[in-house]
Amino acid sequence: MKNYTVVAKDSFTVLGIGTELRSDYTDYAGITKEKADFWESIKQDGRLETLKAVATNNYIFAVNEAVNNKMMHYAGVMTEASVPEASRLIQFPKGEYLVVKGEAQTAEELSNKLTGIAFGQVLSEVKDVAYVGGPNATVEMGQQNGILFGEMWIPVVRK
């Protein structure tokens, strides 16, 4: 069974609050801890609620993007508004996206699971598309019967 699809998406923008990930890109445990600490921090100090208050939908984005040779991680929402806490407008290009669906008990588990499947399995298996960079995101889309569900969106190009 194929655990991904490739879909066309219009360009969209995510308003994000971000942090620089300082662990080496091969240090999965270090990156995971930095992301978890960041999410805990923005939940505790109210910045996540501030973002959610201006969102145009219920989606919560966990965005990864290389900016000026730095590995950045953002919490974000789709919105036309801005908030002082936000550090970046993240532009996702119009085009095709590799989409991996999943579900988990927590947002952190969902993000880690989708990222692991997408980058650890699917991208190495697909033959007709390739990820050539740009922002990618896990998208927490909702909850059903106490289980979170969402998707990983990775911009791709045809080989």
Rank of each mutant, 00 (worst) to 15 (best):
K35V: 15
A118G: 07
V139L: 09
D24K: 11
Y59Q: 00
N64F: 13
E80M: 01
Y74R: 01
A55I: 00
H73N: 13
E96W: 01
S41R: 12
A62V: 10
T32D: 13
D24Q: 12
A53Q: 14
V6T: 11
G102K: 07
Q143G: 05
G46L: 06
D37N: 15
N64I: 00
H73E: 12
M78S: 11
I60L: 15
Y4H: 04
D24V: 07
V157D: 05
R22H: 13
H73D: 10
F92Q: 02
G16C: 08
D128C: 04
M71T: 02
D24H: 11
L89S: 11
Q144N: 13
A86K: 00
K159L: 13
R158Y: 06
E109T: 09
F12P: 06
E109D: 14
G102V: 08
T106I: 10
V63P: 01
K113E: 14
I31N: 05
A81H: 15
E109C: 04
K52Y: 07
G95W: 02
V63C: 09
K35M: 15
A62M: 09
I17L: 13
M141A: 12
A137Q: 01
D10C: 02
N57H: 11
L15K: 00
I31L: 15
E34A: 06
G30M: 01
A86Q: 00
P93M: 04
L110I: 08
E40Y: 11
Q91V: 12
T79V: 00
T26C: 15
G120W: 08
Q121H: 13
E80S: 03
T13P: 01
T19N: 10
G146D: 13
L123P: 02
S11F: 09
G146Y: 10
V99D: 08
D128P: 05
I147D: 00
L148H: 03
E109R: 03
F61E: 03
G46T: 05
T5D: 15
I90D: 04
N64K: 00
G142D: 11
F38M: 03
V157L: 11
G150S: 03
F12A: 10
I31R: 10
A107H: 08
E49P: 02
V132K: 12
I42W: 02
K101M: 07
V77L: 11
A107N: 09
A36Q: 14
F38E: 06
E65S: 09
E20S: 14
K70F: 01
T26K: 14
E34H: 12
V156P: 09
M152D: 05
M141N: 03
I42V: 14
G18H: 05
T79M: 10
P84M: 03
G150P: 09
T50Q: 15
G133V: 07
Q144S: 14
D10I: 03
P93F: 04
K9L: 13
I42E: 01
P93R: 04
F12C: 13
E125K: 10
D37W: 09
L110Q: 04
V83Y: 12
R158M: 05
E151K: 04
A62R: 06
R88P: 01
G76P: 01
K94Y: 06
T50R: 15
V77S: 04
K9V: 00
A53Y: 12
T26L: 14
G30T: 07
